[in-house]
Simulated assay, not measured.
Amino acid sequence: MLRIHFTTEDLLKTRVISSPDPMWELVLSVFRLRRRLAVARYEPWYRQVRADAARSDLLQRVRLMLMPMIPASGYFPDFLTPENRRRGGVESIIESVVGSPGSVLRGQLDLLDRGRGSAWLERLYEADLAAREDLRKLLRDYHRIALAPYWNVIRNSVEADRAIRTRALLDGGVHGLLHSYPPLMRWAPPVLHVRYAVEQTLHLNGRGLLLAPSHFGQGPANSLADPALPPVLVYPAGHDRTAAPVTVRALGRLMGGTRASILIATETATTSGELARRVGVSAATVSHHLSALRAAGLLNTLRQGELILHTRTSTGSALVNAAHTSGT
């Protein structure tokens, strides 16, 4: 259990991440690559990444370098998920990881059980320049194979969760937001109780908290081990269990004013009943059109407590924005 203590200032500074964090997704995807049977939704990704990585030595490098740093359970180094360069793009983040000071590398790698680690990890511990270059190339190659081709799916997952949190914030303020996470989290002001791998207490002390939904997150939440670093809480994003692959046939079913109205109305997370009232059709009609929009990859449907909420994917938003731009 992780107990996060808030002050009034912390509540004012608490926010939800605006887009997926590439390094958190990378680190957590390594867990999924290792534990493919845990969740069936990752099975297609697992099969494709394994096949693509097998065409080179990438899978071997992941096993020798990344997996010793990211064990099957427990601690992994904070320097793998830097917050300070997140807005600079993937290359900037990778450079921040690779350029971590030697003292940071040694201090954080000391917390790992390196008894069965690779010789490469020992060279990284000594801040060896060749080991740093190996890490740079590995992170670039892994991102290119395991993350970049799936970034739309990752982004949709995070944006759908963010839409739910936005609704909770609008309906109930920050307290409503923090109450929107059961069963993973329980908000008992001024403490947020979070399902976590170890017993830990974190005092925010006026710094606020960054809440970060993750597509590859699964099970308990994750956070940084060093309480002096900017506080972040990474948790599994809600996902659309009814999503279907996008097909030309499905896209062809989108023609019509009712579906366009529904798509426009789902800018924020919305229930079927609300959509029926806004668009002026029956619940059965809304349900039919929601199925078509989901099949075309333009809508996500997620469960939040007893509510079933619908929100646009980034593709759906792009379609609406294009229509606004062209005046149609």
Rank of each mutant, 00 (worst) to 15 (best):
A260G: 13
L210D: 07
E95S: 09
P230L: 10
R50E: 10
S73G: 11
R15T: 14
A130I: 07
S317F: 02
G280R: 09
P231K: 10
P44W: 06
L192R: 11
E25L: 11
T311S: 14
Q200W: 05
G305C: 00
A322V: 04
S282Q: 08
A260R: 13
T311N: 10
R123F: 06
A265M: 09
M255D: 14
A265N: 13
P182A: 08
P44N: 06
H143E: 05
E25D: 12
L169G: 12
V246Y: 13
A212H: 08
R116G: 08
D161Q: 08
S103D: 15
R55Q: 15
V191S: 12
A323T: 12
P190S: 11
R34W: 15
L319Q: 06
S118A: 02
A265H: 12
L224N: 10
A269T: 13
R207D: 07
P82D: 00
L293D: 10
T81Y: 00
D52W: 11
K137S: 12
L263G: 04
R132H: 02
G88A: 03
G252R: 04
S29L: 10
V246H: 13
S92P: 03
L202P: 04
A131N: 06
P227Y: 05
I93Y: 02
W151Q: 07
E9A: 15
A160C: 15
V62D: 09
L2F: 08
V97S: 07
F31M: 15
R41S: 01
E126A: 15
P230W: 09
R155I: 04
A168W: 04
L302F: 01
P236V: 10
N156P: 05
V194N: 01
I4R: 07
L211S: 06
G107P: 03
S92F: 05
I70G: 03
G88E: 10
L11N: 01
G316N: 04
V153N: 11
A296L: 11
R106K: 13
S157G: 11
S96I: 00
L211Y: 04
L275V: 06
G238V: 08
R35T: 12
L138V: 01
I70T: 05
Y196V: 09
L138Q: 01
R278D: 00
W24H: 14
A260M: 11
